[in-house]
């Protein structure tokens, strides 16, 4: 059980003079939802981008299933099994829902383009999709345009798409932002489903209720630094965390 899937060790990153990650350490185990919280501008999304390879680290190391991936480009990390979603859903807006979902299964199958051209069939993902959609709680005609779905469903579908790729670790960036209570519940269920099947989840979220309910461990960032780590109960009572949040509110 206690298998480390993802380890961030002593990572630093600055944009110009602005430090967005300072000596960040983080470990994500198999089968846990790891919450990443902090006030706005704490460097949460930056950290996610550093992990998924969109930004390069200034210094430090990132390990994935024991192998160093610090210098790998983003697409190679994705192929190793590092999936992610985005703050605002990012689909191919001029394509059907089917094409968009198949982008996920392509990543899972990892066929070469030539294999795909000659019609090599991947594992059937339809039953899996049905199962996931049952959790997500809505249905769709998958020949429809992706833009025909409402925002909330798009956000849920993005998680589904990432899960269809069978990643080992999935990085989820504010999945509940802009969703109603019911949809937030669905997000939690989907993420639970992900960890139950052995994935690790890194979750950035502002909805404290959700974070406290579903996270197994939490890392709190402020100004790019880790200010607290631990179980949800410990975090909730940690004076430093409370100060960071209250301080943030005073500033705002």
């Amino acid at each position: 059980m206690e298998r480390v899937l993802l380890e961030v060790r002593d990572v630093n990153k600055a944009f110009g003079g602005v430090i967005t990650a300072k000596n960040v350490d983080m470990k994500v185990m198999a089968g846990e939802i790891h919450g990443l919280i902090g006030p706005n501008g704490a460097g949460k999304t930056t950290l996610l981008n550093l992990i998924s390879g969109i930004y390069e680290v200034d210094s430090g190391h990132i390990f994935f299933e024991g192998n160093e991936i610090t210098n790998l480009p983003a697409h190679k990390r994705a192929r190793l099994g590092l999936g992610r979603t985005f703050q605002s859903p990012r689909f191919m807006n001029r394509a059907s829902i089917k094409d968009n979902l198949e982008l996920g299964t392509d990543l899972r199958n990892q066929f070469t383009y030539i294999q795909s051209f000659f019609g090599k069939k991947g594992a059937d993902f339809y039953s899996e999709l049905e199962e996931l959609m049952e959790i997500a709680g809505f249905t769709f005609d998958w020949n429809e345009h992706i833009t025909s779905l409402p925002y909330g469903q798009q956000k849920l579908l993005e998680i589904v798409r990432a899960m269809l790729a069978h990643p080992t670790v999935i990085l989820v960036d504010e999945p509940a932002a802009g969703l109603n209570k019911q949809e937030q519940e669905r997000v939690s269920l989907l993420l639970r489903k992900a960890v139950d099947s052995g994935m690790g989840v890194v979750l950035i979220e502002h909805t404290m209720e959700m974070v406290m309910n579903i996270c197994d461990n939490i890392t709190v960032l402020n100004f790019g630094e880790v200010i607290a780590k631990g179980k949800p109960q410990e975090i909730a009572t940690n004076p430093q965390v409370i100060e960071a949040y209250l301080g943030g509110e005073n500033d705002a």
């Binding site: 969109i54 190679k76 094409d99 982008l103």
Partner: peptide
């Protein structure tokens, strides 16, 4: 699909391998 994803957003494309 890969090409279409590159067209719409290169970062998303990269995060799908």
């Amino acid at each position: 699909r890969a090409l279409a994803s590159v067209r719409d957003n290169e970062i998303t494309a990269a995060s799908f391998g």
